[in-house]
Computed example of a mutant assay.
Amino acid sequence: MLVALLVAGHTHAQDAEALKARHAALAEQLSETPFKRPLHLESRQTADALQGDIYAVIEQPFALVSMALQGSTHWCDILILHLNVKNCRASAGPGGEVLRLHIGRKFEQALADAYLFEFTYRVVTATPEFLQVLLEARDGPLGTRSYRIALEAVALDNRRSFLHLSYSYAYGVAARMATQSYLATLGRNKVGFSIVGRTASGQPVYIEGMRGVIERNTMRYYLAIEAYLNALPEPPLTRQEKRLQLWYDAVEHYPAQLHEREREQYLTMKRKEIQRQQADAASE
């Protein structure tokens, strides 16, 4: 199944004060969160686009967050944590830095069998207390388009930062039909995070369908960013393994939405993919 990346037509904070205002407006949702971490998730679907947004407080100083989330190679280290990302290669292009991203299935797969995306990468804003990073791809498979990942971060105090990850894409008839076919078969039991009702016993009923898809993947990418940041204190030689372990632990907090593979299946697959990615980079 195609993992759609990124955002179409979203309004971003633009500066530190606007993002801090958003943090203040979400104070109740962040403190009374069902996510076992101070995190708020939103999603929306229009006739031809999907979008997911995550706002979260992370226990990391902004200086560290800003340094870590700048640089296209850092983003390859983040994105490869996702189950469906098979390879990421950063390079310089005529218009700036480019990430060549192969996205495929949730098991071991040859790159020739995965979809290739080319994302432009740029740092829109970087000040002592505000960061905005943007990744965009014009086209994808099955007529999808306008892929975009936007990350904003702001300093809250000397030990905490507030992050906003926005993820969306636009689609047409072919992609809609392919996704609906997946949701009717392999994905028929998949749900997202938004609660749309309650059962007679009071249990939550979660969003399904295409909004469920965008919510799951927005969360997977956010957790990859979180794992990357939280693994930074590790020695360089063990940092990558720590990221993998942290990402898997995090997704398993939400088994109804995110459980796909057993721990050793995930770790074995990702170790091989990272070795392939490193070999690819070394051969340049």
Rank of each mutant, 00 (worst) to 15 (best):
L163E: 06
A184G: 09
Q180A: 15
G140F: 00
Y147I: 01
Y167M: 09
I195Q: 09
D157C: 02
V191Y: 06
T179L: 04
G172W: 08
A153G: 05
A175Q: 06
G140K: 02
L186P: 03
V124Q: 14
Y147F: 12
L116C: 05
L156D: 08
G197A: 07
E136C: 08
E108M: 01
A150I: 07
F119Y: 13
G143F: 13
R188G: 07
T185N: 14
Y167C: 08
A174S: 14
A114Y: 07
D139Y: 11
G140S: 02
N189K: 15
Y169F: 14
A114P: 04
G187D: 09
R188C: 07
F130S: 01
S166M: 08
R145W: 00
G172A: 09
Q109F: 01
G192F: 04
D113N: 09
V173N: 07
Y169T: 10
T125E: 14
G140M: 01
E152M: 07
F130D: 01
K106F: 03
N158Y: 01
Y167H: 04
L111E: 03
L151S: 00
A153Y: 11
L163M: 12
Q180V: 13
L165C: 02
K190A: 08
R148T: 02
F193A: 06
L135R: 00
A178I: 01
L165P: 12
P128K: 04
V191D: 00
S201Q: 15
R138A: 15
A200P: 10
K190H: 12
D139N: 11
E118Q: 14
Q132R: 15
I195K: 11
I149Y: 04
T199H: 08
E108A: 13
L131P: 08
Y182L: 14
V154D: 03
L186I: 08
L111Q: 02
A200H: 15
R188K: 12
H164D: 08
Q132P: 11
T120R: 10
P141C: 09
R138I: 05
V196C: 06
R198H: 15
